[in-house]
Design a protein around this nucleic acid. Structure first.
Lengths: 235, 235
DNA sequence: CTAATATTCAATCGATTTGTAGAATAGTAA
DNA sequence: TTACTATTCTACAAATCGATTGAATATTAG
């Protein structure tokens, strides 16, 4: 085996470390969750519907591929994406799957079957309405994810609190709910809940990472209180 | 298991089809080769150092993930990338590996050890020199790849013919040799050969797909004769 | 110091992936 | 029609992957 062949095998072997890391559905779900912000093992396990040990193993694989970093805080280990490029890569991979695998749309259509009027609005359209101050933007992800970053001016009411806090939703404008991305179900469920309460609501197709990657205005809330108060606007 | 959980599992399962397809080093090498243009099984096997049966199996996996398309021509089956987005995805994955895995650079440094002055020039620098008509651009990939697309104005002499055809290389300007990409060894070897023949030569860091993706001028030669004749310039 | 909690590790088992060898299939030349 | 060529398929063995279970480790509260 020549030096050149050995070099190529070694190089592609390195590239394959990335491929192997993203070859399991649960690791992809974990990456999607971490695109929203850092989380602990326990929370990731709960969100992904996995056992703690299994989640820990998947996190280990992603960490060994240098896609994640871990930080210990007392009992808890917080995992975060090692680089924004990891989220960009995940989104690229998702786009490729959307474009190439007809099953992706079929699965989504089957899921939305029976849920009337779930046609989403696009990010550009939402941005226009936001600028005209004609919508209420509602972030229905868990509060931690809102804190890590959200659409500028968005109100935060996590889905699991929406029924209880429905009175907090302004009634003057149409509500646009958003969550983690095109395949997240939180916004779908939020729209159903809002409509049941008599509010005019639709959902945003994109999630927060897509909005941010498109260079649209975002903000980060550092306070533990969820509010509309603007602390720092990011580009 | 809820409807939502089932929907998520199904969706990430689809995304993972892409991940699984790119989880093996040889499939990545095959993708890299196909970024240069369509090839037959036999040629891909030869280039990747694989058996025919093994190559066929890997191609089958990539085809099942809808990343490749196949076309039969008599005895030969020609495989091609299903979409330019597949090449973009491969390049994105390679960039992520470069950024995140220190081993990538280490392996390259080790390979280049002992080969003096292999510092490559960048695409922008080359474009500047091309515009000033101060270089000879030499494509040292196999002729089929040159035909599928090459840097505008590039001369084609496949590496394996370079020694025999060294007289054809113009001596007036510095020569910049290029091949498939940053981890391809053809340009490295070409520069060594050219320098041995007394010519001033360096290599381009990027490969043809990178050059094209950056929107730099390319052309396609449809004739079976390798020449500088411009047939159709692509954007 | 002990108990509780969060997380990781190791062993096990079943499932999946991969390379090889030989057979099978499809197309073409003689 | 037969022989040759390119490619795919199948069976098999070996390697790898993934979920589970229970043990081990680290940290903190009491």
């Amino acid at each position: 085996m020549s030096v050149e062949r050995r070099y190529k095998d070694a190089t592609y072997g390195q590239f394959a470390r990335i491929g192997k890391a993203v070859a399991h559905p649960k690791r992809l779900e974990i990456l999607d969750l971490l695109c929203q912000g850092p989380r602990s093992v326990e929370v990731l396990a709960g969100e992904a519907g996995l056992g703690i040990a299994s989640t820990s193993q998947h996190l280990k694989v992603l960490k060994e591929a240098r896609l994640l970093e871990a930080e210990k805080n007392g009992l808890f280990v917080t995992y975060r994406l090692a680089d924004e490029a990891v989220c960009a890569f995940f989104r690229n991979m998702r786009s490729l799957a959307e474009a190439r695998l007809a099953e992706v749309e079929q699965i989504t259509r089957r899921f939305l079957d029976g849920r009337e009027g779930m046609e989403p609005v696009g990010a550009r359209e939402l941005l226009q309405r936001v600028r005209e101050d004609r919508v209420t933007v509602l972030d229905v992800r868990p509060a931690e994810e809102y804190r890590s970053g959200h659409i500028v001016g968005a109100l935060s009411i996590p889905l699991r609190e929406l029924k209880a806090r429905i009175k907090e939703v302004p009634r003057g404008h149409q509500i646009v709910a958003y969550c983690r991305g095109p395949y997240c179900v939180l916004a779908v469920q939020a729209v159903e809940t809002l409509r049941k309460a008599g509010l005019k609501a639709v959902r945003l197709r994109e999630g927060y990472p897509d909005w941010r990657a498109a260079g649209m205005p975002v903000e980060v809330t550092e306070s533990s209180e969820i509010s509309r108060g603007k602390r720092r606007v990011q580009r």
